[in-house]
């Protein structure tokens, strides 16, 4: 899988690249409008992470160029602007998703994977890890072929953890993803713990060979036993 990062901030570019390389993606980057346009014209990418404010031009114009070239690369806009207008404009121009800075690495990974999944396995939205099989559309989980009932929150947590398997997921990233933006400010997100505890118990009782581990003081990690 080849991913292009279009971001003028070298530091952020570097962080995103490091994070995506852990997931075994081939990552290229462009720091301004012209070099981004060159790369878009010359190569095919599975996913493009696109910043809107770029030296030399607007990221949204790149989207139009992409469309004009007849390319169907997946695009995720990453912008500091949390404005509805920009979001709508971007999505109308054919972007697949919109991510507001600052974001958590886990969230970025999840968005990229979701976009790639939609492209690669049209309709087949299942994730398999060990003896776990999770169907995202049907919202069902089977462990060793036996179905395991999860409530809405537990299912969302597990999906998010599966997408970010073997990666660190911070409590905040998890809370924002599963409980939504309104939960920000809400104390220390300690309340997540009870949901995790229930999920762990269900998985263990069913004999799943994955485990949600606590990363001390920061968050959680899903690993295959």
């Amino acid at each position: 899988m080849k991913i292009l990062i279009v971001e003028d901030e070298a530091d952020l570019q570097d962080v995103i690249r490091q994070s995506l390389e852990i997931e075994q993606y081939v990552v290229e980057s462009a720091g301004d409008y012209t070099s981004a346009l060159d790369k878009i014209i010359g190569f095919e990418y599975d996913c493009i992470l696109l910043d809107i404010m770029l030296p030399g031009g607007n990221g949204l114009e790149l989207l139009s160029e992409l469309k004009a070239l007849g390319k169907s690369d997946n695009v995720i806009i990453i912008s500091a602007k949390d404005s509805l207008d920009d979001k709508l404009a971007g999505l109308n121009l054919g972007a697949d998703d919109y991510l507001t800075k600052p974001f958590h690495i886990a969230e970025l990974t999840a968005r990229v994977k979701s976009v790639l999944r939609r492209k690669s396995f049209l309709g087949n939205n299942t994730m398999i890890l060990g003896n776990l099989k999770l169907d995202i559309d049907e919202r069902t989980l089977t462990v060793n072929g036996d179905s395991l009932a999860l409530n809405r929150k537990e299912f969302d947590i597990l999906t998010y953890m599966l997408v970010n398997k073997n990666r660190l997921v911070t409590r905040t990233a998890l809370a924002e993803h599963v409980w939504g933006d309104h939960m920000e400010d809400a104390d220390d997100y300690e309340f997540i713990y009870s949901q995790i505890k229930n999920l762990r118990k269900k998985l263990k009782d069913q004999g799943a060979d994955v485990e949600v581990q606590a990363v001390y003081g920061i968050g959680y990690k899903l690993i295959q036993l």
Partner: peptide
């Protein structure tokens, strides 16, 4: 506000990578 978001994003992400 927007300019502040990017350095914060970088800091958080770098720390997440470090912890990982």
């Amino acid at each position: 506000s927007h300019e502040i978001q990017t350095p914060i994003a970088i800091s958080i992400n770098r720390l997440e990578l470090l912890a990982e």
